[in-house]
């Protein structure tokens, strides 16, 4: 469902010169799987996801999502994905319903489809109470549910989550974790980026450890433990990126 081969992205920075935000990233992810991108801040996780979601154009390498090329079939790729980031926000002057309807229309759904999907999704996420309230009047948890509704309205086969629990309280973060797990159970392909070890252990079927724009290792939790000879995942991670704990 997702195939990325040697994806690289070079930014030109006035002060730092050429910055290789992603450097030959290859990954493969199948339906019904949660694939974790684990790395510290600035490792290249967001850049990789943005290239896969066609927000950024790769400098080199290739990738396909649901069979569509991210370079040449951007619109078809975007039609098949849902993208939720911890930094994305809502249109504050729209109501929750207007916000979700807007994206339904952008996804090319018919009015009747949008109405019935909103009914389904709002019921599923328990959103009816605040459906017609402006987004700037919603609590953080309610806003997050609107974002989820926007992400899944068109039933995407592939979902990208870029540090979705960033800055959220434990209760709201748990809602997101449950939602991601449900996406996998429904057979969707999920790519989940985070720097939080416990979330990786909790959710991911396979993991790519990213450091300095490169994939340091890929495998299941057990495979990575076996590869490093460490049990505590934090130690596994540190060993993989060459920053082994001395204690």
């Amino acid at each position: 469902m997702i195939e990325a081969i040697q994806l690289s992205k070079i930014f030109k920075d006035k002060k730092r010169g050429e910055v290789r935000a992603a450097d030959g990233v290859s990954l493969s992810c199948q339906p019904g799987e949660i694939f974790g991108l684990l790395g510290p801040n600035g490792a290249g996780k967001t850049t990789t996801l943005r290239m896969l979601a066609t927000i950024l154009e790769p400098t080199s390498g290739s990738a396909t999502i649901a069979g569509f090329d991210v370079r040449t079939q951007g619109q078809q790729v975007r039609q098949n994905i849902g993208y939720l980031s911890g930094s994305t926000a809502l249109y504050e002057r729209l109501t929750a319903r207007e916000m979700v309807t807007y994206f339904g229309e952008l996804y090319g759904l018919e009015s009747s489809q949008i109405k019935s999907r909103i009914e389904e999704v709002f019921t599923e996420l328990d959103m009816h109470e605040f459906a017609d309230r402006r987004c700037d009047k919603l609590s953080t948890g309610q806003k997050q549910r609107v974002s989820i509704a926007r992400t899944i309205l068109h039933r995407p086969a592939v979902l990208f989550f870029d540090e979705p629990t960033n800055g959220l309280d434990v209760v709201t973060a748990r809602t997101i974790i449950r939602f991601i797990r449900r996406c996998r159970n429904e057979g969707r392909t999920v790519v989940f980026s985070t720097h939080i070890m416990s979330e990786v252990e909790l959710l991911c079927d396979r993991i790519a450890v990213i450091y300095n724009g490169k994939v340091a290792a890929t495998g299941t939790l057990e495979e990575l433990r076996a590869q490093t000879g460490k049990q505590v995942f934090e130690q596994v991670f540190l060993k993989l990126i060459g920053e082994e704990d001395e204690e």
């Binding site: 469902m1 199948q30 339906p31 019904g32 396909t64 649901a66 069979g67 569509f68 039609q79 098949n80 229309e105 996804y107 090319g108 759904l109 018919e110 489809q113 999907r117 309205l153 068109h154 039933r155 995407p156 086969a157 429904e186 057979g187 969707r188 392909t189």
Partner: peptide
């Protein structure tokens, strides 16, 4: 779509009649 996996859910596709 070249993906061969049939277990993934089908997305709601652009109806073509959209605004």
């Amino acid at each position: 779509m070249s993906d061969s996996n049939s277990t993934s859910p089908t997305p709601l596709i652009d109806s073509g009649h959209q605004k």
